[in-house]
Amino acid sequence: MKESIRPSAFSALGIAGALVIWQVLAAANVAGNALPSATTVFATLATILGTGTFWSALGATLGIAMLALAIAALAGVVLGLLIGSFESVRYATLAVLEFLKPVPPIVILPLAVLVLGPTAEMALFLVVFGCLLPIVMQTVDGVQGTDPVARDTARSYGMGEGEILARVVLPSAMPYIGTAMRVAAPAALVVTVVAGLLGGGPGLGQSIYQAQAAGDYASLYGLVIVLGVLGLLFQGATRLAERRVLHWHESYREVVP
């Protein structure tokens, strides 16, 4: 009993300690008015949470991130199945994919802003660009990793190519796709914020930019705290969804004693 209480006691101590340090540093005026005190920030945050602009910005951020994630997932899985199923397509796309993989969406942000303007479409495009490739590559790996015996068994049962793809290859690629989605979901949120912050797209990123440009530091800190909480929620939600969808897979099966 005592053992299990100690970690959470230390956690509470850590959080309280950080807040106290923050408060003391702000009170000591180390950074002038650029570092508002913790109490000011949380009071400002409470006011922000009561405004309609905050909730519409939050809605825009979540809407863009999730819509783009859905588009990227659908397109990524289809492309991945295609690339993974045909050797010639795989070789044709290998070099291009390997080059684009380490290029983050922020690199093409100026181009997206130039062509699409500071709009939701621009943000959507960037998020899809950022999430698509990892999903494609993981799906290809999943298709490649399909057990050949399962494939042959399906064939000898007289399944057509389409049925094998839907009933054997896709389910066996599912854990790979799940991993890709778990990485892509927080990334979608990050890219949406970047598109708002640097590209002027709608959402919380834009709110942060405005707070910084206006020198409204308490709102700036408050919004960043909101983003931290949002990031945690996104990570938790994807983990939960992955567990739900993949409950049949051996790495998720619960052992019944």
Binding site: R6, P7, S8, A9, F10, S11, L13, G14, I15, G17, A18, A31, A34, L35, I106, P186, L189, V190, V193, V194, L197, L198, G205, I208, Y209, A211, Q212, G215, Y217, L220, Y221, L223, V224, L227, G228, V229, L230, G231, L232, F234, Q235
Partner: peptide
């Protein structure tokens, strides 16, 4: 004890998009 103390803080900070920290550093 160090792990228990900073684990929740680390997870929270990790949830913040790294780029969103840039405006804070600019102001500081």
């Amino acid at each position: 004890p160090a792990r228990w103390m900073i684990d929740p803080l680390i997870h929270f900070l990790r949830g913040i998009p790294p780029v969103a920290l840039v405006p804070i550093f600019i102001s500081l």
